[in-house]
Design a protein around this nucleic acid. Structure first.
Lengths: 143, 143
DNA sequence: GTATTAAATGCAATTGATTTGCATTATCAA
DNA sequence: TTGATAATGCAAATCAATTGCATTTAATAC
């Protein structure tokens, strides 16, 4: 389950320019290890990158998405997109609609997608499962 | 599997005002029977509703969503939200990333969500499964 | 029907996320 | 070290969606 690469290795592997800004974004995403929005990334790394602009974050997240380095997530009733590093373990998300906490869940599909492909004559390229609910803590707090 | 209600019945049931604009939106959504964006709805009904504004569509789609009349959908790489009428048959979506065609697929979950609830101590309220791929026609056309 | 009242609509302006154009700067390969 | 190419900073623009407010309309009581 060897998965970790340094930002500069991730970039080199894709022949992407190894810039300070890109390294900072990847380093943060790796450290936080949870989905983050462009703004969250921006506010967490701007102190160490004085002239950094939000547009640079957006541009790089798009580059990373095209290069399969990050995955963009839509969350119901949340306007900003979230981004997570793509790792080896394929998973989905369980999201608390009260506190917003996101946790990974295993992919429950075994041969379901193969069957779906054949049945519908599709070539399946991606799938997303998102489960929404109220987490234990929020239930207790009656939030 | 009796499911069909006239727009005025749908509105009355929820004690929502039965306006011309709301009826037009619901009538269209029922006739088209596929997810539509606010703009698509707007352009398809504006000829019969001269002073209709897009903001009225948005406001009503939000009202309908709160009242469980429509469901809002996010589609990867698509900026607008899509909306579909909620009917009895619970389903998910298979979307062609080439032509954008959306088709319903059965929900594959039996006791999976119950197990997930218990395992994670969550109260599950909603779930979305979206499968992306390339449809038969687009494969043939090599689009 | 008519009056009353609360809610919906039209309209214009605004918001907020994301993108883009362009001049400048930084990276990378030779 | 240099030159070519791509990334960044910065400001402005875009686009989906929302909002404030005056006016209109639907629902209810009379």
């Amino acid at each position: 389950m060897h998965d970790f690469l340094f930002p500069r290795e991730i970039l080199k592997k894709r022949k992407l320019k190894n810039t300070r800004q890109r390294r900072a974004i990847l380093k943060l995403m790796s450290a936080e290890n949870m989905p983050l929005s462009a703004k969250e990334i921006y506010y967490k790394i701007k102190d160490n990158n004085p002239h950094l602009k939000l547009s640079t974050i957006y541009r790089n997240l798009n580059v990373f998405e095209k290069n399969n380095i990050v995955r963009k997530l839509n969350i119901n009733n949340v306007t900003e997109s979230y981004f997570e590093l793509i790792k080896e373990n394929h998973h989905h998300h369980l999201i608390c609609i009260s506190c917003g906490h996101i946790q990974d869940i295993e992919c429950p599909f075994d041969d379901y997608l193969d069957k779906l492909e054949k049945k519908n004559n599709y070539e399946v390229t991606d799938h997303r499962l998102t489960v929404y609910g109220i987490c234990h803590q929020c239930k207790k707090d009656d939030k």
